[in-house]
């Protein structure tokens, strides 16, 4: 479903992603891990067509994101790390806008919107402006919006930021449910317990290169460690000297221009 081949991307002097290749088959939940500044967000931005890679090929559901962007984007949903929402719309209006954009014509759209708002605990907030919602409520709205058009591939950058325990459980169940129904999900997270719990496969990226890829068992074998993902992650990324670039986080906050 997601096909990535020999991806490369530099920002000026920063080589953010190096020669990255992997495939994610349909119906898999793939977790992308890595230290701060490793290149996770950069990769997702290239996969969603926001950034043009310097080199490499990306196919989403068979469509090349470079040559057939609109077709690829119709298939996918994206929850960025710093999402954008229209502050001056109400949740219902925003969701209807999404339905218009993705050309969802079903007569049941309105009911589906109401149902999902209800089940995500936003029933009360239907009439307030998005600008007046709390952080967690916006986050939940974003999930509804992303799943509204039944995407076949979903990219999520840091899925659980700012959510309460109820919502976290709800999102975890939702993601597993969607994957069982055949959706492909690629998410990045720093919560290793989450990755361990819900991921089918895990990829670890450090300094822009993929240093490990596979099921938990395969990662254990590669690290030569039994036990929890945390230990494996720390061992692998320290081996690759991923943390030897403490400037990573600082460079990331530099202005773009």
């Amino acid at each position: 479903m997601i096909h990535v081949q020999a991806l490369d991307k530099s920002y000026g002097t920063v080589h953010a992603v190096r020669n990255l290749s992997f495939d994610v088959p349909a119906g898999e939940l793939f977790c992308f891990l890595g230290p701060n500044g490793a290149g996770k967000t950069t990769t997702i931005k290239m996969l969603t067509g926001l950034l043009r890679p310097d080199r490499g090929v990306i196919r989403i559901g068979g469509y090349d994101i470079a040559t057939d962007p609109v077709a690829a984007k119709t298939l996918m949903g994206y929850i960025p790390d710093m999402p954008f929402l229209y502050e001056k719309l109400t949740p219902v209006e925003f969701l209807k806008f999404i339905a218009d954009l993705y050309n969802i014509k079903e007569a049941s759209t309105r009911r589906r919107i109401d149902d999902s708002l209800q089940s995500f605990g936003l029933g009360e907030a239907r009439t307030s402006l998005i600008g007046d919602l709390s952080h967690g409520m916006r986050q939940r709205l974003l999930y509804i919006a992303t799943f509204l058009h039944n995407p076949r591939v979903v990219f999520i950058d840091e899925p659980l930021i700012g959510l309460d325990p109820h919502s976290i459980r709800m999102i975890k169940d939702l993601l597993r449910q969607k994957v069982r129904d055949g959706m492909t999900i690629l998410l990045t997270t720093h919560i290793l317990a989450l990755a361990e719990e819900i991921a089918d496969r895990i990829g670890i990226i450090s300094n822009g290169s993929l240093i490990a890829l596979g099921h938990m068992n395969e990662l254990r074998a590669q690290a030569g460690l039994e036990g929890r993902l945390e230990d494996i992650f720390l061992k692998l990324t320290t081996d690759e000297a991923g943390l030897s670039s403490p400037g990573g986080a600082r460079r990331m906050t530099a202005p773009n221009i």
Partner: peptide, 22 residues
């Protein structure tokens, strides 16, 4: 729906919310 139409509907909704705020 063509994107421009969807965007236009979105903007007119935001405008009417603005009226509500006003």
């Amino acid at each position: 729906m063509p994107p421009l139409t969807a965007l236009w509907i979105k903007d007119s909704r935001a405008m009417s919310n603005l009226r509500r705020i006003l």
